[in-house]
């Protein structure tokens, strides 16, 4: 495991264009310091990587996703009508959407920051992508994903949308985003897509073999715990609860098969260490986990 680096490196972004093919990395179209290209996906990816880098670097002192200044690589225009974005272990990859349900995935900063946070998780805890540890892996991407956006917008916890993927649905879809940390299960309710399946509490935990054991579904529970702690404390969530979550990830106490209670204890410990046992922050975190039904 690599701990956070005290030495902040230089931001180095490389955006490639797959040209509608499913071959990586594609052609380099914008490197660090190069001017706007005029291609929305390319420039959104470039800016989004910068925003994500700055959260980890300027707030938490981490040099890129690996703590050692790793260049940030992304590929846009992947595939034909490709309705997804993913992290391939080395780079972020963004499709343009099918035009029916999804538009281009770079249209939401939270999608870009979500994918890059998968890189941070890979180089820190590398939580197994299955069941509860997989849901925690997804939740970390959602949590830091929305924090990147909140920081860019200068939003306090009470003013933020807490939505992941707002703006990537086409107008034909009845939904405002893919997930909501504020109200899991309410992000969309559409004739074609069905209803947002995320639970907010353990009482509604979903047992399934689909989606690697529901990693994008049960992530609603730790997502909501983060939201509850953030709004209880108010102010800038990336500075308070966000730092607690970050320090819990780097605490060395999270096994690769971490379950929700183990993660909750790590955040309680991190809050106690930074702010003191019995502090307002420690109580907010403990209360949040209690409300979502995760014993710590």
């Amino acid at each position: 495991m690599r701990r956070g680096s005290a030495v902040v490196g230089t931001l180095r972004r490389r955006i490639h264009d797959a040209g509608g093919r499913e071959e990586l990395p594609g052609n380099l179209v914008r490197a660090e310091g190069a001017p706007l290209t005029g291609d929305a996906a390319t420039d959104e990816a470039y800016d989004g990587l910068g925003s994500t880098y700055r959260l980890f670097s300027e707030e938490y002192g981490r040099s890129s996703i690996d703590g050692a200044g790793k260049p940030l690589d992304a590929t846009v225009h992947y595939g034909s009508n490709y309705d997804n974005a993913f992290w391939d272990g080395e780079r972020m990859v963004f499709g343009d959407g099918d035009g029916e349900i999804f538009g281009r995935f770079t249209a939401s900063l939270t999608v870009i920051s979500h994918e890059l946070t998968h890189g941070f998780t890979q180089y820190s805890t590398n939580l197994q992508y299955q069941g509860q540890s997989g849901a925690l892996n997804e939740s970390l991407s959602d949590v830091f994903g929305v924090l990147v956006e909140q920081r860019e917008l200068g939003q306090d916890a009470g003013a933020a949308s807490w939505l992941v993927g707002a703006g990537i649905f086409t107008p034909a879809v009845e939904g405002q985003a893919l997930r909501s940390l504020k109200a899991p299960g309410t992000a969309y309710d559409d004739d074609v897509l069905g209803k947002d399946p995320q639970p907010a509490t353990m009482a509604d935990f979903v047992d399934t073999t689909s989606d690697n054991g529901g990693v994008h579904i049960n992530s609603g529970i730790p997502n909501h715990a983060f939201y509850l702690a953030a709004v209880a404390l108010g102010g800038k969530a990336w500075k308070g609860v966000g730092r607690i979550w970050y320090e819990a990830v780097l605490s060395g106490s999270l096994p690769a098969d971490c379950d929700f209670p183990t993660f909750a204890r790590a955040t309680n410990d991190a809050a106690g260490e930074r702010y003191g046992a019995g502090s307002r922050e420690a109580e907010a975190v403990a209360e949040a986990w209690s409300k979502v039904g995760v014993p710590a």
Binding site: N84, Q128, Y129, N212
Partner: peptide
Amino acid sequence: APGGTGEQRDRFT
């Protein structure tokens, strides 16, 4: 396996 995804995240099965 499980997941069969290696280090890849957010891909389809």
